[in-house]
Amino acid sequence: MFDVLTRILRTGICSEPLPRIETEQAANLQQRIWAVLGRALCIRQVDAGSCNGCELELHALNNPYYNLEGAGIKFVASPRHADLLLVTGPVSVNMEEALLRAYEAVPHPKLVVALGDCAACGGIFGESYATRGGVSRVLPVDRVVNGCPPAPPDILRAILEAAQGKRQALAAATAT
């Protein structure tokens, strides 16, 4: 136990500042998410035929450097708890139904981010008997993150931007 505590203390806090997004400081946005939602932005990730590269970079977002949960954003196990569906892969036909069911289970307004070149346009796999050629062929997509695989700061920025969209969508819904 002593070893563990010493190690935690010696490592210290190594989290880095959040990336800037187009219109506002990310840290400020985090407070606004909190103000609107009263809780963290919840993401359900669905691998729709990815090579696992994008997933590895999503794991990285949870490491102490990027500290995604520190920004008030977390990955959840059920799409019913999610505000945002983060989809990787060119949408293999074998995953299509599971992806659609996950999408149906996400409450409104359903935000969808297509992550990586495959999710964006099918990538190197394109459209074939086995792949649909990108998430937008199957679902309405709010934001696309290119890269093979995209670097963690790029993913973080896209999630923050999508969250901003979420805030605006919620504000509009409240106004009407």
Binding site: C51, N94, M95, A98, S128
Partner: peptide
Amino acid sequence: LGYTHKGAAKR
């Protein structure tokens, strides 16, 4: 398994 089959051999 087979959910992520992407037709690699044909591609």
